[in-house]
Simulated assay, not measured.
Amino acid sequence: MSWLLLILSGFLETAWAVALEKSEGFSRPTPTVVFGVALLASMAGLGLALRDIPVGTGYAVWTGIGAVGTAIIGMVWLGESHNIMRITCLVLIVAGVVGLKVFH
């Protein structure tokens, strides 16, 4: 259950990061509210997951999911560059996150 909560919290980290960008410096109300709610839920989920998962592993997995998810959304929907080196780096992050879970 803790791992599922951690993964969900990682996806929420992606949500708040994208909402932060879309808020345009907190000048747009809806993305600003989405940012705040997703941030609180993501942090709460991380905190609960860390009851059973070591902090180093949990934090690395949480940030890895958030970073990769945010980068993918940036490349697919926000027009950010997507070349083979960027994609390779994202694959390496995913490999590291999977390795932390496997060797937990």
Rank of each mutant, 00 (worst) to 15 (best):
M1E: 10
M1H: 13
W3Q: 10
L4A: 15
L4Y: 15
L4C: 13
L4H: 13
L5M: 15
L6A: 07
L6M: 12
L8D: 13
L8H: 08
S9R: 07
L12V: 09
E13W: 10
T14F: 03
T14H: 05
A15S: 11
A15H: 07
A17R: 04
A17M: 08
A19D: 09
A19S: 14
A19T: 03
A19I: 01
E21A: 13
K22T: 06
K22I: 03
K22C: 05
K22D: 13
S23D: 05
E24N: 12
G25C: 00
P29I: 14
T30F: 15
P31F: 12
T32M: 02
G36V: 00
G36E: 04
V37Q: 02
V37W: 03
L39F: 08
L39C: 04
A44I: 14
G45L: 01
L46P: 03
L46T: 07
G47A: 08
G47P: 08
G47S: 05
L48R: 14
A49T: 09
L50A: 06
L50H: 04
R51P: 00
D52H: 08
D52Y: 00
D52P: 01
I53D: 03
I53S: 05
P54F: 04
V55P: 01
V55Y: 04
V55I: 13
T57Q: 10
Y59N: 10
Y59E: 11
A60C: 02
A60F: 00
W62G: 10
W62V: 08
T63C: 09
G64H: 03
I65N: 06
G66C: 07
G66D: 10
A67Y: 04
A67M: 11
A67Q: 11
G69L: 04
T70I: 01
I72T: 05
I72R: 02
I73K: 00
G74N: 03
V76G: 02
W77H: 07
L78V: 02
L78H: 12
L78M: 14
G79A: 01
E80K: 09
N83E: 13
M85P: 00
M85K: 14
M85Y: 14
I87D: 11
I87E: 14
T88Q: 11
L90R: 06
V91E: 04
I93P: 01
I93H: 07
I93R: 08
G96W: 03
G96D: 05
V97C: 06
V97K: 03
V98A: 15
G99P: 08
V102D: 08
F103G: 09
F103D: 11
F103Q: 12
